[in-house]
Each structure stands twice: as C-alpha cells, then as structure tokens.
Write a protein that binds this DNA or RNA. Structure first.
Lengths: 109, 109
DNA sequence: GACTATACCTAGTCTAGAAAGGTATTCTAT
DNA sequence: ATAGAATACCTTTCTAGACTAGGTATAGTC
C-alpha cells in the first residue's frame, strides 16, 4: 500500500473504452469485465472508475442512460460514441507504440 | 500538447534506473540515452527529469556527485545504490506483469 | 432480520509529469 | 570579437488522474 498504484496511470480510459467495444455495460460490470479479462490481475477501484466515467462523458467519448440490469437493479449503462470508438483506436495504437519504445529502453544493452 | 503525454506515467523511474544500470551518468546524458535507446520516441523533458532524480535521491535509489564530463563541463553524476538496483528489478517485473494484464484486456474478444 | 453482493456517488489527498521560466559554460562559425 | 548552438542544471506552478475513505440504497439469500 502506498507504493505502486493498482493501475498504470493513463491506461484506464483505454481499458474502459475497450470493455465497451462489444456493447453497452454499466459501471460495475465494466470493472468486473476488466477484472475477469485480466484474470484478476487488474482491479479497478470504484473511486477511480466513476470519476473516470464522468470525465469520459464530458469528453464525449461515452453516452449514458439509466436502466435495469438482469438482476433487476437500477444501473447506469454506458456506450461508446463515434468519438469514443475513434479514441479507442488512437489510444491503443499510441499505447502499443509507447510500450515498444519502453521495451527498447528496457532491453537495450 | 494537451492530449497524450510524452511518457507513460509511472515508467520514468524505471527507465532512469535502467539507464544507470551499466554505470553512472549525469542527468543530461540520462535523457539522451533514453532518447537514443528508444530511437527518438521517448523524449524526457528536463522539467520532469530533474525533479524525478531528486525524488529518487531522497528514496535512496541513487547517489549523486559532482564531476566533469568528457566535454569539460561541470555535471552531476548519478549512480545506482543497492536499493536502486533492487528497485529496478522490482519495477521491471511489476511492469511486465502489468503490461501482460493490460494486453489480455485489450486483446480479449 | 442480518448479511452479502450489487450498484452508485463524492470529497479530499497525493504523486508525478509538463510547461515555462531561469542561469551558466564550452565550443564553433562567422 | 561575438553570436549562436549545444550542453548542463534548476525551480515554480499547473494539472490530471488514481487512491482512500467515506457515504447511500436495494435485491436476494440464509
């Protein structure tokens, strides 16, 4: 606790966008999906998630509407806008490029 | 400019530690080495570098001493401490693990 | 009726990267 | 000689964003 964060800062938007690519989800389900896809290695704190979702709404990457889950619970469903889909492409390619550059640094003798 | 940062936040310490692994360097040379190793893709701003170096000194990962470069210039040379070397190991393995988890998320259908 | 899991939210803290300013020196080219 | 580029360092201020720690509410189960 206190040393390294759970997440690599700057990758949360990208993963949220990715998780919504197949279709709308509510917030709680986004965190769950990312946790599952990462086999439990990535745990999104909800104190990180909801503020991030709100920033993403403001940026126009997502739209939200209230609805009801399979479990008959009230929940807010988020879906990608066209801008969000575009952003996902941009973020993932920038991320891949960045990772390759970092790995060059880390592996160069 | 505004949109994506030059660096993936949280990776600067790791790359500085890595750049010092072969032996001591001064600050300016650290930035240059990282830029070269990444083939120009990673540019460390000196407004990021020097504060980071000072934080790393406080954490005990580095020691510094003033000296003179090949060019006959006064410069501050940094070298890894034992704690710094240990930290480099820890950061890189955590980073690799994190990247693998993120890639799982980004590639899962 | 208690408990767990689900579902949402906010206020406050902290880290660290970036922008924008600054100083000084060495060497080269005109 | 002097102008400029490259080298080398530094600090202050801003900002984004992730985390902590609190909170509310409901559905279903034991």
């Amino acid at each position: 606790m206190g040393d390294s964060p759970d997440l690599l800062p700057g990758t949360l938007y990208m993963m949220i966008l990715r998780s919504l690519n197949p279709g709308p989800l509510h917030g709680y389900a986004i965190a769950k999906r990312i946790r599952e896809w990462s086999k439990g290695d990535l745990q999104i704190e909800d104190g990180s998630l909801y503020p991030a979702l709100n920033r993403m709404l403001l940026k126009g990457w997502l739209k939200a509407e209230w609805g009801v889950t399979d479990n008959n619970r009230r929940a807010r469903f988020y879906r990608l806008t066209a801008a969000g889909r575009k952003r996902l492409e941009a973020e993932s390619s920038a991320f891949n490029k960045m990772i390759r550059a970092i790995q060059l640094v880390m592996r160069t003798s």
